[in-house]
């Protein structure tokens, strides 16, 4: 039911390392968090494009699919499948369809939360 313990270990280690690199980028360079997210998502597309994303995901599971790299990897997979299936138009249709679950969830939950909650003042 819970899967293999080793899967958790690899997910933890790889996921943690991916985040640790981002933290190093934040603290040691002047890169803003928004830029780092963009770099990670494009990196995910790149990894997917060169065929490294799937092997990594097989090994690390959620350690690579849960970080934003996974979002990019998903986009790359979607594009590849759509292009194979329906030609050049797939370059436009594949990416967003593959990422639609997460995007739609974020937008819908975001709207609902905005309806029912209020922002609080920040406290030191």
């Amino acid at each position: 039911m819970f899967g293999a313990p080793l899967d958790y270990l690899f997910a933890f280690l790889v996921g943690g390392t991916v985040c640790l690199f981002a933290q190093l980028l934040i603290d040691l360079t002047k890169l803003t968090p928004a830029r780092i997210l963009v770099i990670y998502v494009v990196l995910g597309v790149f990894l997917g494009a060169v065929g490294l994303f799937e092997p990594l995901a097989d090994f690390a599971g959620c350690g690579i699919t849960v970080p934003l790299v996974g979002f990019g990897g998903n986009v790359a997979r979607g594009v590849r499948e759509s292009v194979s299936e329906s030609g050049l138009i797939g370059a436009l249709t594949g990416g967003l369809s593959a990422a639609s679950g997460g995007t739609a969830a974020a937008l819908c939950f975001g709207y609902l939360v905005a309806l029912f909650c209020n922002a609080r003042p920040k406290r030191p």
Binding site: A11, F12, G15, G16, L20, L24, V66
Partner: peptide
């Protein structure tokens, strides 16, 4: 400077933890 070691430690554990939680959800 930001406390680099502390920040990296928490980034690693929280990030890894969230991925491990994802793994648990996936298994379920």
């Amino acid at each position: 400077r930001s406390p680099l070691f502390k920040n990296c430690f928490f980034a690693f554990t929280f990030g890894g933890g969230i991925c491990a939680l994802g793994q648990l959800l996936l298994s379920l």
